[in-house]
Design a protein around this nucleic acid. Structure first.
Lengths: 233, 233
DNA sequence: CAGTGGTCTAGACCACGCC
DNA sequence: GCGTGGTCTAGACCACTGG
């Protein structure tokens, strides 16, 4: 069951993507959208709220909802998108090699105060883009959430597997970007001495931690983009 | 005039910060909050929405609103916070040196398609943390928005000046993090060959672009942290 | 001034988690 | 079953922008 607010948001998104509404344009007013979709105004507003969250529009009092520039973002808006999705949206010629897939307890160094090591599936993957090794991903998927991972899925998009096949509701993540000397095995794979490192902790909708990732990137190819709204309270 | 939803959000935020509600705890139910604050439920929900946006709570259907871990973030949640605010929240011993403050057109390389060079105030500042030069900030503040910047304010927090004194409504930004060879003058100031670079475009609530920043960081000290929610539509 | 978005209300029904 | 959050409604008044 899709909610009305989601349907409206999707429809507007499609119209923005198709160029029916272009950057700088104003969307129809909220009252007008109300008539267009046959819903109450609060429902329309919730739909628009989704687009605001996506960084697609900006609401201006007394003027309207302004469509923002899309093409600024080569990379995903706030990086919770998976590697496969990235390729699709960027049209890169990419390949994934699974180097390791085994049972291994999650590392201590990832853990904060109350978290301790837990049984997990460890996956090391090499991402090859346009024929060049660019990224090494090391994932720990907690067994308490996903007991088993088929090898075939690891070569594909893990997120697709988790969400579509297992019905997991991946909800939020914390990320930390740093620049470090490459560990030996990474240095060998990527042929560089230093790497950009992205460490993530990914959580489900019910607040369960389920994935710990360390992602090593060739620094000369690395880009991390972010869309941020100023939080005032 | 503070809206009810903002007051409620602030109050809950204070209670979370003070430890009255701790990570893992559930906030009172929405109906209960309704009675507590004497408002309708939708208003309570809007307040909670703000806390969700901040990454402070996670709502779980059938269970309640769970308070999330705060202390994961040494750096601000989604980096639209200014340097001075950072210090305050992290208790660092920091100092700012204004190296340059002059009129200078905004650079071309920052511009996308329809944007061209515009008159701006250029500010170069050196950030010294615990006695060590760590960051070089280069800002272009568009004159169309802020015609003049007092030298004294540049040494302070520009954001405080813009928001409190000028009443500007800073709303959102796009950021791009990369690792690069340091430009000569930066290499000299920070005494390193490579730097972490954060480029930002900052916009006002009415969608006017007003600030372009390039921020060079010592790579060994650099950390960029992000809280991201998975965007499903 | 008319039109825009921002806030708020007092209901209602539904979907889900937990006991 | 009960309590939770998710969705939705049909009004209302306010604050701001624009011409």
């Amino acid at each position: 069951m899709e909610s009305k607010q989601r349907l409206i948001a999707k429809d507007l998104l499609a119209k923005i993507k198709s160029g029916q509404y272009r950057p700088g344009d104003l969307l129809p007013g909220e009252v007008q959208l109300t008539e267009l979709y046959g819903t109450s105004r609060e429902t329309v507003r919730k739909a628009l709220r989704h687009l605001v969250d996506l960084g697609l529009i900006q609401k201006v009092r007394g003027r309207g909802s302004v469509v923002l520039n899309l093409d600024r973002y080569k990379f995903p808006i706030s990086g919770l998108t998976s590697f496969k999705e990235l390729n699709a949206s960027q049209g890169l010629n990419a390949e994934t090699k699974v180097l390791v897939l085994e049972e291994r307890p999650s590392p201590e160094y990832f853990m904060t105060a109350e978290l301790t090591s837990e049984p997990a599936t460890f996956i090391r993957r090499l991402r090859i883009i346009n024929g060049e090794p660019d990224v090494v991903d090391e994932d720990f998927i907690l067994k308490s959430v996903v007991p088993e991972i088929p090898l075939g899925e690891a070569a594909n998009s893990l997120y697709r597997y988790f969400e579509d096949d297992l019905g997991l509701d991946i909800s939020y993540a914390t990320k930390l970007v740093t620049f470090e000397k490459a560990p030996q095995h990474v240095a060998k794979l990527l042929q560089v001495a230093s790497v950009a490192v992205v460490r993530s902790m990914v959580y489900l909708q019910d607040t369960r931690l389920f994935q710990l990732t360390t992602s090593y990137h060739r620094p000369d190819k690395f880009e991390f983009s972010d869309f941020a709204r100023r939080q005032k309270l």
